[in-house]
Design a protein around this nucleic acid. Sequence first.
DNA 1: ATGAAAGCGCTAACAG
DNA 2: CTGTTAGCGCTTTCAT
Lengths: 341, 341
Amino acid sequence: MNSPVTPARRATIRTVAQAAGVSTATVSYVLSGRSGKAGSPGVSSQTELRVRQAALGLGYRPNQAARTIRTGKSNLMMLSLTMLSDPWSLSVSKAVGAAVADVGITPMILADTDWRTAIRRQGADVVFIDAADQEGDAGLLAELAGSNRLVVFSETLEPNGFDVVRSMAGTTMDQAMDHLTATHTKVAALASTSSLKNARAGRYGAYVRGLERAGLALQDKYVATFDGDELSAYQAAVQLLSQPDPPTAIFATSDFVGIAAIHAAQRLRLSVPEDVAVVGIGNTLQGEAMAPSLTSVGPAGFFDGLARFLVDRAKDPSAPAQVLEFPWQLFVRDSAPGSTH
Amino acid sequence: MNSPVTPARRATIRTVAQAAGVSTATVSYVLSGRSGKAGSPGVSSQTELRVRQAALGLGYRPNQAARTIRTGKSNLMMLSLTMLSDPWSLSVSKAVGAAVADVGITPMILADTDWRTAIRRQGADVVFIDAADQEGDAGLLAELAGSNRLVVFSETLEPNGFDVVRSMAGTTMDQAMDHLTATHTKVAALASTSSLKNARAGRYGAYVRGLERAGLALQDKYVATFDGDELSAYQAAVQLLSQPDPPTAIFATSDFVGIAAIHAAQRLRLSVPEDVAVVGIGNTLQGEAMAPSLTSVGPAGFFDGLARFLVDRAKDPSAPAQVLEFPWQLFVRDSAPGSTH
DNA sequence: ATGAAAGCGCTAACAG
DNA sequence: CTGTTAGCGCTTTCAT
């Protein structure tokens, strides 16, 4: 029974050094794993062993804050994911998780939190921001980029000290609409309330233009809006499909909306795609994995590509800012198989 | 055009001090917001203003790592959530997000990552671990508790330097089974492969015992297993319900499984609860929010209570370790309304 | 009311 | 091969 006079003060590099009978420098060399590396002194395997044993015995664990302050590297990757329950966010998280295996980087998610305030408080080697299309953010981002390596997902922003990840939709949303109008005349849209502001731009705009190209009228009863979460999308879809003369195809402005629409249809005992076809936007893993799998437009190899890019930036935060583009394509799957059936 | 000779070195407390013509101590007092606080010196409002303006002009932002090393507080809360897509995890995240508003704490999620290695690298004022039932973790947790404030969710572990959050299931799972067997004779279970190991323990055990109490036979065809993710659960449910003589009630060992089961039923044009009733376990927000709402057993006020507890611990990491218990109850909702219909 | 100065635990020159 | 030493940016006594 050794009396715990000192209240278990956490072991530091110095404690270890004393126990091993060496200097703190030696301990540092050994424990940060660069004994024999280029440019650094080597340590004899005997002392190395002594140091390791002392560290183990004392339960030594390096103080990350101290290491960070000294090296300027935190080995942290921050992911600001605005809507965590969105399969898009989950796909990002999953891909990143796979990409950081074996690299000494810890990914941490900032969920449903305002990055604008959070980033000021917490640094990271690289921080990914999933939503910053608004004009007002451009200045703030440029400012924050001074002290953090930022990777911003945005269709409109230009790199400015920070990287911009962009998924080049091009005309693929138009393709998706044409895909639907080729076999359907009652095509509905399921759009978030916010996306309606710009009737001819963005995802909803693709719907409007698609109808025009097909010579179909834009009808109020075929445009349903929701508030942002799954339940709201689900309810909007139920409403859309319960009316007399319901649509036979739904253009959903997001994969999670498309998924909700499929669930809603099935709830109403409608078959997908026989009674109602559904396309989503985003090409998420969850859309692909569900049954029936969701036809969607979106970037190919996006999540893995993004994850790799983030890891690269974390390892070399001083690389020049660039744009990373992922061209989109139409992924025809079960929920809207096209004209074959 | 001022020539950027110095490559935009980030402003420190010293830079600010020079610009304002004061000492670093004064800057520290002002900027860490305790000019007039008890025990600390006051700063005249004039100098305070000068300091603030200098800081603003220089775009000064405090270095968290330095602050952490000095104070020992990181203002960080780490949430290790093993299966992020599980509504349980999302509920935790949401509740915590709401609880930290206005408090100076940033919650960060460690998703689908092994906390065993990650915690060694990254510290936080408090870290929540959502899965640690295995015996082997007890020692490791006790060790880690030496340098991190740990809050562990576990039904079996006892506090040992770390807090244990526990939801006292008691006999509520039995109640849930009785709820089903009161009006059904074909009651199926949807359980994860791992939970089957202990046939009479845990959630699956409640199913087995429930059948016994009702005098019903345990039949293989009414026991479906899945692998851990939604898709797998969904497919298992489809299989369960597509067979000849399908069950009329499903006991799902998790809310997300119950949700998947409802989706599967609807896919098969079965009505919930008319054709098949479903109960889940966990009482998550998502189960409550879906349509039809999911009958579930689980703790009352769990997520908000947990969030509050975590915030308390973050603010006072040296509070004595304790057990936090949330007694369960049965929440009868639309997916299994009971004998009234 | 303000400043000087001592570190927190660690890394990285530089000396020996 | 190993030790000495000077800080990283910040907080916090203790003087003034």
